[in-house]
Amino acid sequence: MELEIRDVKKSYRKKQVLKKISLTVKAGECTGIIGANGCGKSTLLKILAGIEKADGGEVLINKHPMKWQSSGLAGCIGYIPQESVLIPELTVEDNLKLWASFGEHKKNEEALKKLGEQFQLGNFYRKKVKYLSGGMNKRVNIVCALIHEPSLLLMDEPSTALDLVFKEELREYIRNFTANGGSVLLSSHDEGEIAGCAALWAIKNGIAQKVPQGETIEKIVSEYMK
């Protein structure tokens, strides 16, 4: 799935967060977005996921304009927000059941079994979400986004709170996902994750700039993060 963003704008009250964002995510590639805290990375991902409405601009998916808050689109996009989407008073199993109940729920339940094994949820399957550690919570959130077998993954700092083993597990998953033709757009501050991206975009002053390949971390930090 190819994603093209053209001149997307977004303001909150008087503050213009995204002035003119244009970037492309190619099919079968992992694209990264970097930028200082509060530069608008999460806002852009929310717009692409369909939970925030852009003030202007256009988003094209496979050359077709994206319709805002279309439930059909939700089925082919997997979004992992920074904030947990789980109901804390319920168990992991119950939460996963909820997200598996959308669309073809029988097929989703099959997918859930595989993902549960891959992300090793078995140990805390019946544990209430409010008693999970940050890392465990993140793993369950990732699984929730993957249940529908999306073709485009939008990940907002996905490796936050994950331990080294699961960070590597996630990278492996992303590699396989893109190898099978899926596209990933992730925002991150993690060096390893940034290094794994085929293309990198930096958001500064509300505008996206492409980071040339092979740029060192020091240069990225000095040029795009300050």
């Binding site: 996921a49 369909g50 939970i51 439930s71 939700a74 927000p81 989407v85 959308f102």
Partner: peptide, 11 residues
Amino acid sequence: CERKKMLCLRG
């Protein structure tokens, strides 16, 4: 919250 927004997205 994000959950509510995502549930909206799911219909």
